[in-house]
Design a protein around this nucleic acid. Structure first.
Lengths: 204, 204
DNA sequence: GTCTATAATTAGATAGAC
DNA sequence: GTCTATCTAATTATAGAC
């Protein structure tokens, strides 16, 4: 029952499933649920459409697995980094937490994209996304906003969405930003500049 | 040549074209270009797919007409309101400009949605959107950010995307926000609270 | 496990009736 | 102008060969 000996076949199985999942994250984040096709995911994963059904049953379940994967990254990263924050004064601690959040938004623009894609219409995917992932994410960030940044409770939704938007949009529309402003938001210097700018915006 | 007598048939023509265009704005903003079908646009406009081809030739051109329509709203509204601003001190003037921008984002979440949808991948639609609409929009706002809010030129792309994201995300994902936080961002009080919050964020 | 073949729908674009 | 019918291609899901 427990994780037995890892056979070559099991490793192969995991590797294939993994390739499909990574391709799904990429494709859904780029084209949204409706704009993506399971055939394209298969092509990007260097396999065929039949295997997607074999591992994930349906497009809907593939999408949920991709969303799970996207949010996994946030939880582990933020928990680790925020725990290790230098314990200087409160305001500087809050700023560094926000800088870390911006760095995450730069590394994983997929989270913001899926949030904007699915947040527009009240349907099953939105309900699932809110209940399964957005709620704990919101609780954690809103708690920090009140405790560390001193935001009034009534303002929390405003601060949450203002922070998420200010931190993430630049990276979510990277190609557009390059053409519009000349700035490449993938550049490490641009990420740090944005991190500091947003941190000082919310915690002056 | 010049606008002659408006016959009943011309009025009918304009009305039909208008219904299709409004339905297209709605559909594209909700589902993106790839996720939308011309059949659904026709259904929402209470007509048939053939008429879309008749008036707009292709899905691509329908999308461009819808984008034109979305940006029309911004230009007329901002030009009018910003010109009529009470000439108090500079900082309060900057705040009121930002408040007005937030009110626009609340009334027209379609602009933000199309920007996020099309900004992810460097393709023809993105190039057209940047050159036809985003460039003048960016010039106007970045000019104001430097002149009125005193933002350094190197920071302008960061301030632009931070402002756009902070101002718009709440309204772009309204249904999600309602389920996640209980706040309905369509409520006039919520709009004003957000407007003031974002204005004081950027101009303390 | 992997992949091909296929069934049932749906897509955008076009032709033509009225 | 308006609408229906249709062509070609692509979609998800499924069945089955190997």
């Amino acid at each position: 029952m427990s994780p037995g000996p890892t056979t070559a076949r099991q490793r192969q199985r995991e590797a294939t499933r993994e390739r499909i999942l990574e391709a799904a994250v990429e494709t859904f984040a780029e084209k949204g649920f409706l704009g993506s096709s399971t055939r394209e995911v298969a092509r990007r994963a260097d396999t065929n459409q039949g295997l997607i059904t074999y591992y994930f049953r349906s497009k809907e379940e593939l999408w949920r697995a991709a969303a799970d994967r996207i949010f996994e990254g946030l939880e582990t990263r933020l928990a680790k980094r925020l725990g290790a924050l230098e314990a200087t004064d409160r305001r500087e601690r809050a700023r560094e937490a926000i800088r870390e959040y911006v760095r995450f938004a730069a590394a994983q623009p997929e989270l913001f994209r899926i949030m904007v894609d699915e947040g527009r219409v009240a349907d099953d995917r939105m309900n699932w996304l809110v209940d399964a992932h957005l709620r704990p994410y919101f609780e954690a960030i809103s708690g920090a906003l009140m405790d560390v940044a001193g935001i009034d409770e009534a303002l929390v939704p405003h601060a949450f969405y203002a922070l998420a938007g200010a931190a993430s949009l630049l990276f979510a529309v990277g190609p557009e930003c390059r053409r519009l402003t000349g700035l490449d938001p993938r550049a490490p210097a641009a990420i740090e500049t944005h991190a500091d700018y947003v941190a000082r915006l919310l915690v002056p």
